[in-house]
Write a protein that binds this DNA or RNA. Structure first.
Length: 528
RNA sequence: GGCCCCUUCGUCUAGUGGUCUAGGACUCCGGCCUUUCACGCCGGCAACACGGGUUCGAGUCCCGUAGGGGUCACCA
């Protein structure tokens, strides 16, 4: 049997990280068995612009490399894959259910329904519809209609026995039929609802494994009732735990972003992202740009494999030790029976640590390419990039090493792309390293003279030069190197000092030191 | 509230009756390295929700309690 799974997003305009985890499990299950992963768009209830609301989701999948065998853009033997274009199938199914007596026209008014519901609640019993306005024959229907009533189609659910099925994650599950409500499957206007559409599509698309979040577990009996009534074969179900909020067991929700921002790690990640976003022209409004949404990671330069690796471990594990999974390894080892039953909270730190290690393992060339994109978006280098600049960027990326965790971090080293006269000094380190030590200015000026005439200007030679200079002056390296860093980069922290000098080159170094000394003189004057 | 589900370090998890004085990872805290910031290395703190059973023996099986969550739409 070919395994066919599906992921069925509603076009909401964004791709939720929890949704991706569900999609990933579906994708893995199908792909590892040589089966197909289908993308279906659940847009029965949307009147919004599909371009705007669907494209970000498709982009997210493309970025992650979660390819679908059938669905939007690629088509397939069961096209169309949009529910909005399959309404007649659902209507036909509704009619079939009506004809076979598994559904009925219900002429109750919303108020009458509400009254029954309330009464049940008052008496503390399950709400089961009295079926007072149920019409099973055309005569009954005509009578209700003569009273000015209109109908919806409801499922005529069994009232005895149990619905039993096996779930790949939860084991044997059973529900009492008698507690299930007669759900509406077709609205007054003739359009059909989710549960019907879902069952019909899964059947038409030949989906063999329904892998979805647990919140659908309690929907399953009514879906089973529908599919059995329609004579369909039952798929394998796997209800996976949802992804929970950082630090709680509530379902992760995009809408509660304000609350998550109170979480220290979540906030730090968001702020790091926002800093990058601000520089490359992306609006960092937390409602459209935040760590719950997949775009966030793409936009600030995460590696898709790192995100996937983190996600696969959220509710699944291979053993007691293995944590690193390439795409191939995931495909090889993933199995539904090792999916955990309890919900897992989203942990930014761990995601970040995967990102750091994946980034570190990325070949320099690719890392440079990623970083280049950010420099261009921030208008720090031209597009296309000039040849000698390309070399410079590669040097910087190499020197920065693991200080670049996400590609957008390259912007922390913008000092190399700024004209000397436009460089700004961070105030705090300037005070601490330049103003406060009495001899900083003198030492820097002296060392500048040395730099001006020293023969070789590569990192190794410069290191020797500086050490020689310190020896002559009778000082430690620490006495001058901090001021040097501030003078040359404007910042307190950065990568290796000598790499920095070499990359900048003699002229720019001397130039910047002179600017820093002038700045220092101004401060001293002002203080007197 | 009814129904259903879940419960091992702060977090993700390993664990299917003895090998558990509970293992790994992230975080955190020390230390080393070091010109800064990182990385790296070494070390450390830290958990079986509780109460009853069953058993020679329970994190592991059973019952109960508590806590947490999901779901109860003419949403998906």
């Amino acid at each position: 049997m070919t395994i066919r799974t599906r992921f069925a997003p509603s076009p909401t305009g964004y791709l939720h990280i929890g949704g991706v985890r569900t999609a990933l499990f579906n994708w893995l299950l199908a792909k590892q068995a040589g089966g197909q992963f289908v993308l279906r768009i659940d847009d029965t209830d949307t009147r919004r612009n599909l371009d705007e609301t669907l494209q970000p989701i498709l982009d997210g999948f493309n970025w992650l490399g979660l390819d679908w065998d059938e669905g939007p853009e690629v088509g397939g033997p069961h096209a169309p894959y949009f529910q909005s274009q399959r309404l007649e199938h659902y209507q036909a199914a509704a009619n079939q259910l009506l004809a076979s007596g598994h559904a009925y026209r219900d002429y109750s008014s919303p108020e009458e329904m509400a009254a029954e519901r309330e009464a049940a609640e008052k008496e503390k019993r399950d709400f089961v519809y009295s079926r007072t306005w149920m019409a099973e024959s055309d005569e009954q229907a005509a009578e209700f209609e003569s009273q000015g009533r209109s109908f919806v189609v409801r499922l005529k659910m069994p009232r005895d026995g149990k619905c039993e099925f096996h779930d790949l994650v939860r084991g044997d599950v059973s529900f009492d039929w008698g507690r299930e409500a007669d759900h509406v499957i077709q609205r007054g206007d003739g359009t059909c609802l989710y549960h019907l559409a879902n069952v019909v599509d899964d059947h038409d698309f030949e989906v063999t494994h329904v892998v979805r979040a647990v919140e659908h577990l309690s929907n399953t009996p009514r879906q089973i009732f529908i599919l059995q009534s329609l004579g369909y074969e039952m798929p394998q179900y796997a209800h996976i735990p949802f992804v929970a909020e950082p630090g709680s067991k509530n379902k992760l929700s995009k809408r509660k972003i304000d609350q998550y921002l109170n979480n220290k790690d979540f906030k730090r990640l968001y702020q790091a992202g926002a800093e990058i976003a601000n520089r490359i022209g992306i609006e960092a409004d937390p409602y459209s740009f935040n760590p719950v949404l997949v775009d966030f990671y793409r936009d600030i330069g995460f590696l898709p494999d790192a995100v996937l690796n983190y996600l696969v471990l959220l509710g699944w594990s291979l053993d007691d030790k293995t944590e690193d999974f390439s795409r191939e390894e995931m495909l090889e080892h993933f199995s539904a029976d090792r999916i955990v039953r309890s919900e897992a909270s989203f942990d930014c730190q761990k995601l970040l640590s995967f990102q750091a290690s994946y980034m570190n393992a990325l070949p320099l060339k690719q890392k440079t390419k990623m970083c280049l994109g950010f420099l261009q978006k921030a208008n720090l280098v031209s597009d296309p990039v000039a040849c000698e600049q390309g070399e410079l960027i590669s040097q910087i990326v190499e020197a920065a090493g693991d200080r670049i965790c996400m590609a957008g971090d390259i912007l922390k080293f913008d000092t190399f792309f700024i004209a000397d006269e436009d460089m700004e000094f961070d105030e705090k380190p300037f005070q601490k390293r330049m103003v406060k030590p009495a001899n900083a200015g003198f030492l820097l000026a002296e060392f500048n003279k040395v730099l001006n005439v020293t023969d070789d200007f590569d990192a190794a030679a410069l290191e020797t030069t500086l050490h020689g200079f310190c020896e002559n002056q009778g000082i430690g390296v620490g006495d001058v190197i901090h001021a040097l860093r501030v003078a040359v980069t404007g910042k307190a922290a950065g990568f290796g000092m000598f790499d920095t000098l070499e990359i900048l080159g003699r002229q720019r170094c001397c130039n910047r030191i002179q600017i820093a000394l002038d700045e220092l003189a101004k401060r001293v004057e002002a203080n007197q």
